[in-house]
Design a protein around this nucleic acid. Structure first.
Length: 224
DNA sequence: GCGACAG
DNA sequence: ATCTTGTCGC
């Protein structure tokens, strides 16, 4: 797969502004029978990234397929330019999939980004697949306090715009940051995150991908 | 200028 | 992201 790739911070910044105009913030899909989760981890010793995509049955949450890849780092981690680091291994893993998912939940922000183009938007626009951003911590935006019960939420605001939602997925547990990636509305994104978190703070999709990534990372470090 | 800053 | 001990809960 060929994608435009920046060779500098300035280029990356400009590319985000161009691609951000392609993001669709409304529901644009038929039915969702499979939903995937993604995660990426870094191996210090070899300076490589391990990326994983796990496809689940959207109704039973059973695992349908897993793909894991290991690649050299192409771009440093810079807040706001995060997707340029994680996108390559995720696209490689996606290519390997036999079962292309109907929707993807990313472990990072979507529109809840300084230029409204976080990882979830980048992956969604690149693959032209509906995506949801679900981050563990905040990148940008402010919000009101939310009560401690599962399902509680508050709008994430930045520059007087609603860029996402802070959502409590479990009672008395820190909330997650939900935002539109591509071809989904914020309310649809929120509904999916709640469905995917019947028991834990993070979506089952993300948890499965995280598990695969760490398994591969451990195997990598066991070699040398 | 200073702090904040997805993973 | 990763570095880390003990502690709490199922």
């Amino acid at each position: 797969m060929h994608i435009e790739y920046p060779s500098s911070e300035t280029q990356a910044w400009a590319l985000q502004e161009t691609l951000a105009t392609q993001v669709i913030c409304e529901d644009n899909f038929d039915s969702i029978s499979t939903i995937a989760g993604t995660d990426v981890a870094y191996d210090d010793a070899t300076n490589q990234l391990v990326g994983a995509i796990v496809v689940l049955d959207a109704s039973t949450l059973d695992i349908i397929e897993t793909q894991v890849v290991t690649e050299s780092v192409r771009f440093p981690y810079i807040p706001g330019l995060f997707s340029f680091r994680e996108l390559p291994p995720l696209l490689s893993a996606f290519e390997q999939l036999t079962h292309k998912p109907d929707m993807i939940v990313c472990d990072g922000q979507g529109l809840a980004h300084p230029r409204r183009f976080g990882l979830a938007c980048h992956l969604g626009v690149t693959l032209d697949i509906p995506t949801i951003g679900c981050g563990k911590t905040r990148l940008t935006g402010t919000h009101e306090a939310l009560v401690e019960t599962r399902g509680a939420s508050a709008k994430l605001i930045d520059n007087e715009q609603i860029i996402g939602e802070v959502l409590r997925t479990q009672d008395n547990i820190k909330p997650v940051y939900v935002s539109v990636g591509h071809k989904v509305s914020l309310s649809t994104a929120r509904d999916w995150i709640l469905k995917l978190t019947p028991k834990y703070r993070l979506p089952e999709t993300t948890r499965q991908a995280d598990q695969q990534v760490n398994r591969a990372l451990k195997a990598l470090q066991a070699q040398g």
